[in-house]
Nucleic acid binder design. Structure first.
Lengths: 241, 241
DNA sequence: AAGTGGTCTAGACCACCAG
DNA sequence: TGGTGGTCTAGACCACTTT
């Protein structure tokens, strides 16, 4: 039941990065040093370092060495990723608190967004997510109680709302809108930012079997977060125009 | 001047996928078959298939084989879209003018973004795109002259820089970063917006055959533009792992 | 000259799946 | 039982950078 050797080496290096022992710029052991200390072959050491490099944790310079990379504070765009895991992947500490939690009667505009023909009740949750104690995301979320009836029973201490919903409801379809905004006074206070700092607002709707599951607005202070994506072009080749 | 063997094998497989010869679900040659047909060792064949799997093009099932994967659902937010066609699709009139055009010696930070080991020359272009006469996008672009040597011969009257590059250079990989910014005075004047209006900054890099083609920053006034995407989640439960 | 990463080989053992 | 992928080894040659 032991994991592969190259995975153990990767984990060993990630531990040192996560713990802060190896900060960005630090030189990590060379392939030959790993061969000695782990009693493995060079190909195995090479695979561990090569994969960590592909994943963006390390950078390598032929003839010089392998170094810890600066972890960018950015979130993957368009995937349903868990901010807690994203922060953990950077070796930082995630925490969150609930600012507001209620069940409301949906006003017309919200009922439209949920594609509900008649007004109904919705769960409403406002949370602040912090990275090493600094607020990085304000989550303002409405949830359809017919699709996720147990959403309001969660305390979200160990699991984020996104993670809960992904696990509880299969998502068929996603809609994202990204815009730059000047936050309101309330938003500014919750995020603890200055008066003229713009924010990124990511508006997300998700569907499951034709029903809107949740409508969420995720607000990121511009100085603390950017949205990121990188991918290989699909070989079918059709880059639109 | 020859590329590594594992890269040649990857390219060989991608060609078949791109051409449509191998459709999703098709079984690709096994490691042993590649060993024979390419006269390589199994480790080299393994690396090619493993990396294509990590990049999302193939899926592997131990004891069974390796198969072409369904292309992932991508959002238009992440595609290379041509702002001229986007505006035309809304029935509006697109126009653009060149604010600046030059060839510069790349400073270190830019050389790093282009993954150039030593400083070199770069094309630099600043354009303003308007929709019905209103500025909607400020395009600030650097281009690698080794990859697109004729970029500077274009006048971009009938074709946007994005459209030219897509046609001239096959794009393998894309990176996007989105952030909210407060524009500089110069940017504000070019976009003709008020003093406290935030903007969306879309930072894009594209690669072709391992070389960075272009680094572009596209700035959109918050009041005039939002980025949007909607897509179906690809049928999950595929043979991941 | 010594050390680094980049690649490659020709074997090997294993767990798994199919006929 | 034979083919598949998953992993690993102990060598090797190369281009490169640092000392």
């Amino acid at each position: 039941m032991t994991s592969p050797l190259y995975a153990q080496v990767k984990e060993h290096i990630l531990e040192h990065i996560r713990s802060g022992a190896w900060t960005p710029g630090t030189r990590v052991p060379s392939e030959n040093e790993l061969v000695e200390s782990f009693s493995i072959s060079r190909m195995t050491a090479n695979r561990a370092l090569r994969e960590l490099t592909a994943d963006g944790f390390l950078s390598r310079v032929p003839g010089v060495g392998t170094f810890v990379k600066e972890p960018p504070a950015r979130s993957s765009l368009l995937e349903l990723r868990n901010i807690a895991e994203e922060i953990a992947a950077r070796g930082h500490k995630h925490a969150a608190y609930i600012d507001r939690r209620e069940t409301i009667e949906a006003p017309q505009a919200l009922a439209d967004e949920f594609e509900l023909r008649q007004a109904s009740k919705l769960f409403h949750l406002v949370m602040v997510h912090t990275e090493n104690g600094v607020p990085v995301q304000l989550e303002d979320r409405y949830v359809n109680p017919f699709v996720a009836p147990k959403f309001n029973d969660q305390d979200f201490a160990d699991i984020t709302p996104t993670a809960y919903l992904v696990a509880a409801v299969p998502v068929d379809e996603l809609e994202h809108t990204v815009e730059a905004i000047m936050p309101t006074v309330e938003q500014r206070e919750l995020l603890d930012i200055g008066e003229h700092e713009p924010c990124l607002a990511l508006h997300r709707r998700s569907w499951s079997k034709g029903h809107v599951v949740t409508v969420a607005t995720l607000i990121y202070p511009a100085s603390r977060y950017a949205l990121y994506s990188r991918y290989k072009t699909s070989p079918s080749g059709t880059l639109s125009q």
